[in-house]
Amino acid sequence: MTLSEDQVVRYSRHILLSALGGKGQERLLATGVTLTGQGAAQAVAAAYLAASGLKVSAKGRPVAPEETGFLLAADDVGRPLEAMMRAALLDANPDALGQPSEVGALGELPAGFSGTGPWVALGWSGNRGGLVYRGRDGCAACFERTAGALSNGPAGASAVLLGALGALAFERLALGLSQPLGGLWLSETGEVEPMDLDRCASHGQTGR
């Protein structure tokens, strides 16, 4: 795949990055993400991923009130998410529509995860945000145990921060810049700290 002239301009600030270049941007454009949960943080993550050129898809339910923001307006609440997202993306970034060569999943919990990855789970433990990520080489059981401690939560400023961090975690995985498995906590005052993973039986304390 070669970048079109419009894409060279639109993603010029990504292409300038040593970690990306044109090849990295092409990789983002070839990666898809399915939204598997619901919430403010997930909606923000989806908007950043779409702006970066990843193909974003969602289906099967109405838009929730806490999902308004960059892509969805107050008028969209209660209407079908898939159609509303499609209309917004057509205007925001048509590159975010279409068939990707690989598809990962991102969900604000409760959410399901399937396929090879990347997977990013966003959620909450009280007012503390949590993010768990897994690439194709990360253990799915460790991911699910760790993410299982999180649930739905607030939709304020922290949710926007958690969503942007979720998009960052997903793009790092798509670009091959990430460890295969990890997580972080986000405090109410904005501090990010590493999260201890809840290891599955076969990885014990030493697995990756």
């Binding site: 300038l16 923000v44 921060l161 961090l165 998009a167 109410e188």
Partner: peptide
């Protein structure tokens, strides 16, 4: 330099959101 104009979208988003979180703390 030109290369310094490069920036990853979600990084800017996280920093901007963090500003709001800090401002309201």
């Amino acid at each position: 330099t030109c290369a310094e104009a490069g920036v990853l979208g979600p990084v800017v988003g996280a920093v901007g959101a963090l500003q709001a979180v800090v401002a309201l703390s």
